[in-house]
């Protein structure tokens, strides 16, 4: 089960809404909201495919400018392989 830490850059005017809209306990957990329009999120998924799909879906949300990856751990998945 890969885990990643990402920074989601948002349009400032939609920051509050996006915090609520994107937060999904167990898959996308928003841990911090920054004053520069960034959301800090931890993404947890069953597979890399699901993880990438979650990130792409976030990128497609209106008001999301960009998603960047700070941390990615996939040791469980490698062991499973």
């Amino acid at each position: 089960m890969p885990i990643s830490g990402v920074v989601i850059k948002c349009q400032m005017e939609r920051l509050g809404e996006l915090e609520r809209e994107l937060h999904r306990p167990g898959s996308v957990e928003i841990s911090n909201v920054l004053g520069d329009g960034s959301l800090i999120a931890v993404i947890e998924s069953a597979s890399l495919e699901e993880e990438i799909s979650l990130v792409k879906n976030i990128m497609a949300v209106q008001g999301v400018l960009d998603v960047r990856v700070a941390y990615h751990n996939f040791e469980d998945q490698l062991m499973a392989e």
Partner: peptide, 30 residues
């Protein structure tokens, strides 16, 4: 797993704030 999630959040927070925020001691958990 909780530690790894904390590492993920800390790394993202540190990167987003230029290191002003975000703990680094969670690395011990890795």
């Amino acid at each position: 797993r909780d530690f790894l999630k904390a590492s993920a959040a800390a790394a993202a927070l540190a990167a987003a704030t230029g290191g002003r925020l975000g703990a680094t001691d969670v690395h011990a958990a890795e």
